[in-house]
């Protein structure tokens, strides 16, 4: 008797969760479509300046044209590869730098104030110098993508390295483990979740670095499309690039998020 009541209440509970989930999704979809419908409508009625704000219809038209002539793929491919390489290298270099600092505590003491300064400095301000040094090409954009994430990655991962419970290191040392073994068996695996989560932050940062880099120098890419659209006053082009960036950045973030869940399920 009692059991059937419990079963029923539980079923109700599950039903409620499902119901709420459905409502949230419904309202999310509503906002999404309402936004685009209003945009289109306001633009056609000239309530907003169609020259500045364009309209979803025009953007879609441009999208189709650019896909059929293939030029969009070139731009997307360019920016995407810069961003992916940028954030992977940014995370890799940051981890390597953090390892070096962990390995040589003296070095970390010496470099501490410089890291603070470099971290506080807006990295995009280095743009002109990068262009002069590396030339107005792929490499200076990539450098921007890396530079913007590498310092904060170093600081976050180095802090994580130092916060590893020293007793785990004690275990390894009591078995006669070397410093390298302490690093490989304890410090690195213990900080793996931190490294993955910096990957998540760096996805966003690298997009900033790469787009700004493209503003400054490039002849291709989504950042170039934005700046070109701005110069010839083609805001349909600008908005198209923005939408594509939003979609790609979200997909990349979700992929890293998925990777994180796969890799650290045992903790």
């Amino acid at each position: 008797m009692k059991k059937t009541i419990v079963t029923k209440t539980h079923a109700d509970f599950l039903k409620n969760i499902k119901k709420e989930k459905r409502h949230v999704l419904l309202i999310q979809l509503f906002i999404f479509f309402a936004f685009f419908v209003c945009w289109e409508l306001f633009s056609r009625q000239k309530w907003i300046d169609p020259l500045l704000f364009s309209s979803p219809g025009k953007i879609w038209g441009l999208f189709v044209t650019k896909i059929s002539d293939g030029s969009l793929f070139v731009h997307i491919g360019m920016t995407l590869s810069e961003t992916i390489i940028g954030f992977l290298l940014g995370t890799l270099f940051g981890t390597m730098l953090a390892t070096l600092l962990w390995w040589i505590p003296f070095l970390s003491k010496v470099l501490e104030p410089y890291l603070v300064i470099l971290n506080a400095m807006p990295k995009v301000a280095l743009g002109p110098i990068l262009i002069v040094v590396l030339g107005p090409n792929f490499s200076s954009i990539l450098a921007m993508g890396i530079l913007i994430s590498v310092i904060i990655t170093t600081i976050v991962i180095f802090t994580a390295f130092n916060n590893v419970d020293p007793n785990y290191i004690k275990v390894v040392r009591s078995f006669g483990g070397s410093k390298f073994q302490c690093f490989k068996e304890v410090v690195l695996p213990a900080c793996f979740p931190t490294i993955i989560s910096t990957l998540k932050v760096n996805v966003g940062l690298s997009w900033v670095g790469v787009i700004v880099g493209e503003y400054l120098v490039s002849k291709q890419g989504l950042g170039y499309m934005i700046i070109y659209g701005f110069q010839v006053f083609n805001f349909t082009l600008v908005l198209l690039s923005l939408l594509i960036i939003a979609v790609l950045a979200t997909i990349m973030y979700q992929l890293v998020d998925f990777l994180e869940k796969k890799l650290i399920k045992n903790r």
Binding site: D165, N167, Y168, K170, V171, S174, E185, V186, P189, A190, F192, N266, R267
Partner: peptide, 12 residues
């Protein structure tokens, strides 16, 4: 051989 207060088994 050395054994600590807590087990300190490596969770990963």
């Amino acid at each position: 051989g050395y054994m600590l207060q807590q087990d300190y088994l490596f969770p990963w």
